[in-house]
Design a protein around this nucleic acid. Structure first.
Lengths: 351, 351
DNA sequence: CTGAAAGCGCTTACAG
DNA sequence: CTGAAAGCGCTTACAG
């Protein structure tokens, strides 16, 4: 049987199906495996021509180092964990896509780890995950990212992690991605004021969620800074769910003294407002203006399409993952992402 | 400084923070590391009392074998890859949750790998992913699962994989999970016939998707088996997207000879029908009955809530992952999941 | 700038 | 049923 030989050198054994190892490269290049290792790890202690020769060979052979072997020797895998406790599918998927954008061709892979922050043993579950897999880094996504105990556990383990948070927080061990939810809510407030609304109601997420607190504060403060205000009775705390949005809207729209606009902490609850308005015979936006938060696909599926605050989730995920795999412990301790309002058809000046 | 000693033996060194290794266990148990290895791998070649003694010790110490080291020795990691090319967030997330249900406490982890089946190099991308990570197994999710070339590549690599498919297919190398989309569509047809509809239209997904073909066939055949039929002009091929649903609905609802009911290949397109109906002043379900497919969250967010076919995606993911990690190449080559109709408020008898 | 030795924590192949 | 030796494909620590 004729052996296929490398067109370039003639010395490389026929492609046997078995991937090349560091030993193959070292032998073929006539250097020690340690030199190959230095090249793999971008050590400066390699002569330029040696490096170029070996790199060319690695490309020709299609060599990539075995992450399992590297991981064993490094005592650390090439896996990035994404830890989250969030029911919104689009948000999670966008975050994953973003992370994968950053990880593509980096040699790192993304391992997903949803958890339930309300269950007592969840921190231990994350610890086992991180420790056993010897993760290279962990992305903490809201609301899991808000749990200081989780972050403390990770810091104690000495594993690097990023926290994606609606606002700044004091954490020396973390790399932070701040999403500035306040700004998005403020923009919504400005928009409604500009349209002429004065009687505005809020349906907020649970006050145990920082995102809910931030969005509410951002909205109320922006209103106040322009002379507006929201009476307490016009603020209803709901649960970020469709059903809770329905319940809140029923309260707000029951009497004859209805608000002319409602700002919702997310799109799900805004959809709940739509449902109640439809049932009640109220026309959006003629009788009632509505704004959501998330700019989920739902926003454009509703009729009329929903004005909402876009969060740039994919960018957020990309930045968070990049901070984890970037070489060195260099700067970039805090990154920022800012939301912005996407205007659609759910608002108009009050009657 | 007082050393903490094991209450049980007094011989175990204080927990130093460093996880125990197979050598620690062997030494402490007074057996060879090979015996510990046999126990880890459930070999029958271990005396019962030896096994129990060692297992108790492992539990006490909190020992879990290092997947990196095992992977290196096995030449195979403990990672399951999920390969998909699907834009629907909820579907992907449900599939992931299902897979994670199966993987929980199994020692395996889930690595996600979205891809673009229309890009030319995507199969090579999956190959590199599978080969470099030495994946233990791969889950192929629609529509990537429909690509025979992808499956062939995996078979050639000798890696085990599951294909989740709308219908049966001939693939000796795969473990199959058949979702029987036909049955769900047939149930929708029966329901509309029972309500009294005779002039029914279809908005289908792209005919290049097996799911679209199956759903259409299932619907049309069920109609035919009860004496009904759908004229060609009443079947519009769309793209599974909201926008394409809008365009299709505009055609169907333009003239005065409107159908009394529309069956859509997914919920996204059904939302498009809603939009056009709203805009046109048609009332659902009074003037028009609508059925979707997916039973996505969108279905209950729309008003009136959408009758739709539920797919049991999480179960599907759980079964597919289970087939991958189940020991041995035992039976269970094909599993089945069946959809069913969830009746809500979007249908009623025709006027 | 380069390399030979030892080791990461497991398993395979072989011997008993 | 049990174990000593060699090896998986890399890196660290040390020497030159």
């Amino acid at each position: 049987m004729p052996r296929k030989t490398s067109a370039a050198t003639g010395t490389r054994p026929a492609s046997t199906g078995k991937p090349a190892t560091i030993n193959d490269i070292a032998r073929l290049a006539g250097v020690s495996k340690k030199t190959v290792s230095r090249i793999i790890n971008n050590s400066p202690l390699v002569r330029k021509d040696t490096r170029e020769k070996v790199e060319a060979l690695m490309r020709e052979v299609g060599y990539t180092p075995d992450p399992l072997a590297r991981g064993l020797a490094f005592r650390r895998s090439f896996l990035i964990g994404m830890v989250y406790d969030n029911p919104t599918a689009q948000y999670i998927v966008d975050m994953q896509y973003g992370a994968l954008d950053a990880l593509r061709d980096s040699g790192y892979e993304l391992v997903v780890h949803p958890c339930d922050t309300r269950s007592p043993g969840y921190i231990d579950g994350v610890r086992r995950f991180v420790q056993q897999q010897k993760l290279h880094g962990v992305m903490l996504v809201p609301r899991a990212s808000e749990d200081q105990n989780l972050a403390d556990m990770l810091a104690e383990l000495g594993v690097r992690y990023t926290r994606i948070l609606p606002m700044g927080v004091d954490d020396q061990d973390a790399r932070l991605v701040v999403t500035h939810d306040r700004d998005g809510a403020a923009e919504a407030a400005d928009y409604l004021l500009t349209l002429g609304h004065r009687d505005i109601a809020l349906i907020t997420g649970p006050s145990a969620y920082r995102s809910a607190v931030e969005r509410t504060a951002g909205f109320v403060e922006a209103l106040a800074s322009r002379g507006g205000s929201v009476p307490k009775a016009r603020i209803i705390e709901a649960g970020y769910t469709f059903e809770s949005g329905v319940a809140a809207a029923e309260k707000l729209l029951a009497g004859k003294k209805r608000p002319t606009a409602i700002f919702c902490g997310n799109d799900e609850m805004a959809a709940g407002v739509y449902k109640v308005a439809m049932r009640t015979g109220l026309s959006i936006p003629r009788d009632l203006s509505v704004i959501g938060f998330d700019d989920s696909p739902l926003a454009s599926r509703l009729w009329p399409s929903l004005t909402s605050v876009r969060r740039h989730t994919r960018d957020t995920g990309r930045i968070a993952a990049t901070m984890l795999i970037r070489a060195g412990n260099a700067p970039m301790p805090v990154a920022s992402v800012r939301p912005h309002l996407v205007v659609r058809d759910s608002c108009q000046p009050p009657a």
